[in-house]
């Protein structure tokens, strides 16, 4: 299941770091954060609890970029 989210991230490097952090979250098969579009494309693992995974992704991203937001 692939979903797209509008996000807020302040710099290109932070976006790259957040992407790397989000990719390590369990339940995430693939993730791409596009700084210029301010979008995150997230592919969930089969049968993953999307809400929980999304929360974990947000937490992981906040760790590298405190201002990271999913709108």
């Amino acid at each position: 299941m692939t979903k797209r989210y509008q996000i807020e991230v302040d710099c290109a490097n932070c976006a790259a770091l957040a992407e790397a952090a989000a990719a390590k979250v369990e339940g995430v098969v693939a993730v791409s954060i596009h700084f210029m579009m301010q979008e995150m494309t997230l592919t969930f693992a089969e049968g993953a609890n999307e809400k929980a995974v999304l929360k974990a992704v947000l937490k992981a991203c906040r760790r590298v970029e405190p201002d990271f937001q999913i709108l």
Binding site: S32, H34, M37, T41
Partner: peptide
């Protein structure tokens, strides 16, 4: 155009590696 978001240029990746 939605696919755009998920594809990036090599140079872009290069810059992150560079940093």
């Amino acid at each position: 155009s939605e696919e755009m978001a998920s594809k990036k240029a090599k140079t872009e990746a290069f810059i992150t590696r560079f940093a």
